[in-house]
């Protein structure tokens, strides 16, 4: 499925469940998401993590609402509890099955976003593991110079920002030296298309969602 259409559908779903209070709908979305992830070969361990990690915020929201809420406290508490899971699992259907490169391709080719933006995001994404390692290295470098850089030390952030600015400049130069010119036409090796099938899935998804919200008498 075209990643940009998938993202669009998920945004619609997320927006809609933010304004509805149907517990069964949230649960149904989680179940559908699990089925989808299962079909895409997601490991059981990953699924288990997705269940465990949101538990704390979900319980937090549930208890806040249950203790301090107004109106139908029990209903609202469970709505919020299941909503968190619905967000996490529908989100996971995107993040766990879509390659960032495919998304960049779709944004550039199907939605005609400036290629600078698409590739900038991509390059930044590719830098993330390097940045994590860099923070470790900066702290080690500090220690070797007798200075402890704690997580609230401005020097650590100054250094990290400096490194980032430097990287971004070098990256811009690297892209330019590999022939990249802002707003210039490019050819595309990986062809990203929006097929009729994508539109149909989007349409069916949105219709299904409306049926779930307005038609089915959930209890």
């Amino acid at each position: 499925m075209n990643p940009s259409i998938k993202l669009l559908l998920l945004l619609v779903i997320a927006l809609e469940i933010s304004f509805t209070m149907i517990i069964s709908l949230n649960v149904a979305l989680v179940v559908l998401a699990i089925i989808y992830l299962g079909l895409h070969g997601t490991k059981l361990k990953t699924l288990a993590w997705l269940l465990v990690v949101p538990l704390l915020p979900a319980i937090g929201l549930w208890s806040t609402q249950y203790i301090n809420g107004s109106g139908d406290k029990t209903l609202m508490a469970w709505v919020l509890f299941t909503r968190i899971y619905a967000f996490v699992f529908t989100g996971a259907t995107f993040t766990l099955t879509t390659n960032i490169l495919q998304l960049a391709d779709a944004l550039e080719q199907n939605w005609h976003l400036p290629s600078k933006f698409a590739y900038g995001v991509l390059a930044a994404y590719n830098l993330v593991p390097k940045i994590q390692h860099e923070v470790k290295v900066i702290r080690a470098a500090g220690l070797m110079r007798g200075q402890q850089l704690s997580f609230w030390s401005p020097q650590l952030y100054f250094k990290a920002i400096l490194v980032s600015i430097n990287w971004s400049q070098n990256l811009a130069q690297a892209m330019a030296s590999h022939g990249f010119v802002e707003d210039a036409p490019r050819t595309h090796y990986r062809h990203s298309a929006v097929h009729a099938r994508d539109w149909i899935i989007l349409g069916l998804g949105i219709i299904g969602m409306q049926i779930g919200v307005f038609v089915i008498p959930w209890h």
């Binding site: 590739y119 690297a174 590999h178 022939g179 050819t187 090796y189």
Partner: peptide, 17 residues
């Protein structure tokens, strides 16, 4: 000097440009 993740993708990026 690279913007992409893999060797192949970097070469493709340059050729697309």
């Amino acid at each position: 000097q690279f913007a992409m993740d893999t060797v192949e993708n970097e070469l493709i990026f340059a050729l697309e440009n």
